[in-house]
Design a binder for these strands. Structure first.
Length: 457
RNA sequence: GUGGUUGUAGUUCAGUUGGUUAGAACGCCUGAUUGUGGUUCAGGAGGUCGUGGGUUCGAGUCCCAUCUUCCACCCCA
C-alpha cells in the first residue's frame, strides 16, 4: 500500500477543539437571540437543483457555484454534439445538482413550496454552511457558515427595529462594544439617482458607491464617469458624498437635497420611523449610524439596508441585511415583502480573537479530571466520577493507569482546572484529594465537599 | 476569471555563486522525580526539501508543469 500525504481541498478548513469551542460560543449567542425573538429554525439540504440556483446570483455567481456530477455513468446521456457545443451546453447533461451558494435562495424555494402550510408572517433562522468556488484569500473561504434570520410576509418596520435589537443583543452577549450599525434605504439611493437625473442607473450607482470606503470620493467619481454618468450628474452627486455629522444633521441635509425626489423622502421617513420605534422601546444607545452612502451589492434589496462595522478592528462587515419586495417572485409567488439579515461568524471570530473577548468558560471543556493510579483503585475512581457526573459536573477519568506526571500533564494541556487524585489512600479513607491546577493547592476532602466546590464552575 | 506571492521537522523559520551526512528555536517523547502539571537539567525521536518532469558529474538551490498558501483586482461573507 502506498502512503499518501493527506491534505484539504482549496479553501476548506478543519476546526479543532479550541476553535470549535470559540465558534460554538458565537453560534449559541446568535441562536438563542434568534429564538428569543420568535424565529424558528430551518435547515435545507446542502444540495439544490441547479435550476433553483442558477440565474439568481448573476453571471458571476453562476460561475462560483459548485456543481455535482450526476451519479453513475454521467457521460451516458451526452453526445459528441454536446461536447462540441462547449461546457455550458454540456453542463446540464452531466450535472443537475449544486451545493448551495447562500441560505436566502433555498429559503425562498422552501417558502414557495410550503406556502399553504406556513403561517405568515413567517420568521425563520438558518445556521448552515454554504459553498462558493471563489478564489480564497484571507477571511474568504470556499466553505463557510451563514447565520441568517428572515421574516417574510410583512412590510412592517417593526421588523427593522427588531433586527437592530437583535444585533445589539448578540454583540452585547459577545462583549463587542465599539461598533456601528450603518443604515440606509434603497429608496433614498433611488431618490439620489432621481435628484441627479440618472434615475435608470440605480444598480450602477450602488456598486460604485459601495466602494466609497475603499477607493474614496475621487475613486467613486472616476468610476461613475467610466460608467457613463453625465458630468452634471456627477457634480450633483458631490453634495451627497460630502454629507457629514450625527444622524440628525445628516438627515436634515439629505432632506433638503432630496426635497423633490418622492421615493427619497419615503426612504427617509421609513428610517425615521425605525428610530421612532427604537425610542418607544426605550433604546438609547442602539449604535445606529445613518449612512446615505451605504449601498450593499445585492440587487434584490428594495428598502432598508444595513451593515455592521467594528470600530476597533479593520475588517469587512460583521453583519448585514436588508428588505426585499420580491424574493419569491422568481419561483412564482410575487409581491411578498420580507427582510433578512445575517451574521458573519468568521469575521466576528477574528474581531473577538484580536480583542481577546472570548471568556474562559467558553474555552474550558472539562472541569475535573479523575486520576487513575492502578487497577485496584479503579472501582473507587469510577464511583467518584459517577457522582461528579450525577452532579452535572463536566468530568473525565484518565482511561488507563499511568504515571501521575503524565496525567497531570494531560490536565494541564487540556486546560482542566481541577484534578481529583484518587488512589489507595483516598480509597481507604473514602476521601478525594482535590487539586486546583491554577493555584497548585490541594486538600483532602469528602466527595460531596469536592462536588460543592466544583459545582461553582 | 486577471495579475502577483508562497511551500524545507508537529509549528515558526535558516540553508552562501548549484558541491560531503539539510540546521535552529519552540513543541513532542524518555529520564533526573515509582503519588503531583507549568520551571530547570540531561538524553532521544522526528524530513521522499509540496508533487511530477527537466538541466547538470552533482539540485533544497536553476528551468517547466501542477497543486497549495497568502495578497491585489472582479465579486462577496
Amino acid at each position: 500500500m502506498s502512503m499518501q500525504k493527506p491534505g484539504l481541498p482549496k479553501g476548506m478548513r478543519d476546526f479543532g477543539p479550541d476553535k470549535m469551542a470559540k465558534r460554538n460560543f458565537i453560534f449559541s449567542a446568535i441562536r438563542t437571540t434568534f429564538e428569543k425573538f420568535g424565529y424558528q429554525p430551518l435547515e435545507t439540504p446542502s444540495m439544490e437543483n441547479l435550476s433553483v440556483l442558477t440565474g439568481k446570483y448573476g453571471d458571476e455567481g453562476d460561475q462560483l457555484l459548485f456543481k455535482v456530477l450526476n451519479s453513475g455513468d454521467y457521460l451516458a446521456k451526452t453526445s459528441q454534439d454536446d461536447y462540441d457545443a462547449g461546457s455550458k451546453q454540456l453542463l446540464h447533461k452531466i450535472s443537475e445538482k449544486g451545493l448551495k451558494y447562500d441560505l436566502t435562495v433555498p429559503f425562498a424555494r422552501y417558502v414557495v413550496m410550503n406556502r399553504h402550510e406556513l403561517t405568515f408572517p413567517f420568521k425563520r433562522y438558518q445556521i448552515q454552511p454554504v459553498w462558493r468556488a471563489d478564489r480564497p484569500q484571507k477571511g474568504r473561504y470556499r466553505e463557510f457558515y451563514q447565520c441568517d434570520a428572515d421574516v417574510i410576509g410583512t412590510n412592517s418596520l417593526i421588523c427593522e427595529m427588531e433586527i437592530v435589537l437583535m444585533i445589539n443583543e448578540v454583540f452585547d452577549k459577545l462583549g463587542i462594544e465599539n461598533y456601528d450599525i450603518k443604515v440606509n434605504n434603497r429608496k433614498i439611493l433611488a431618490g439620489i439617482t432621481e435628484a441627479i437625473g440618472e434615475a435608470d442607473k440605480l444598480s450602477e450607482l450602488c456598486t460604485s458607491i459601495d466602494k466609497l470606503d475603499k477607493i474614496g470620493k475621487q475613486g467613486v467619481i472616476d468610476e461613475l464617469g467610466s460608467r457613463s454618468f453625465a458630468s452634471a450628474a456627477i457634480n450633483a452627486l458631490e453634495p451627497f458624498l460630502n454629507i457629514e455629522g450625527d444622524n440628525d444633521q445628516k438627515l436634515k441635509t439629505i432632506k433638503t437635497l432630496l426635497a423633490d425626489a418622492a421615493s427619497g423622502l419615503e426612504g427617509i421617513s421609513e428610517f425615521e420611523e425605525i428610530l421612532n420605534y427604537l425610542a418607544q422601546f426605550g433604546i438609547k444607545n442602539h449604535h445606529i449610524a445613518f449612512d446615505p452612502m451605504l449601498a450593499r451589492g445585492l440587487s434584490y434589496y428594495t428598502g432598508t439596508i444595513l451593515e455592521v462595522k467594528s470600530n476597533d478592528v479593520k475588517i469587512g462587515s460583521l453583519s448585514g441585511g436588508g428588505r426585499y419586495d420580491d424574493l419569491t417572485g422568481v419561483f412564482g409567488m410575487p409581491g411578498i415583502s420580507g427582510i433578512g439579515f445575517s451574521f458573519g461568524v468568521d469575521r466576528i471570530y477574528d474581531v473577538m480573537d484580536t480583542l481577546g473577548l472570548f471568556p474562559e468558560e467558553a474555552i474550558i471543556s472539562t472541569t475535573a479530571l479523575v486520576t487513575n493510579f492502578e487497577r485496584k483503585t479503579e472501582p473507587y475512581a469510577l464511583k467518584v466520577l459517577s457522582e461528579l457526573r450525577n452532579a452535572q459536573i463536566k468530568s473525565e477519568i484518565y482511561p488507563e493507569p499511568a504515571k501521575l506526571k503524565k496525567q497531570m500533564n494531560y490536565a494541564d494541556k487540556k486546560n482542566i482546572p481541577y484534578v481529583l487524585l484518587v488512589g489507595e489512600d483516598e480509597m481507604e479513607s473514602q476521601l478525594v484529594t482535590l487539586k486546583n491546577m491554577q493555584t497548585g493547592q490541594q486538600t483532602k476532602i469528602t466527595i460531596s465537599e469536592g462536588i460543592e466546590i466544583l459545582a461553582k464552575h
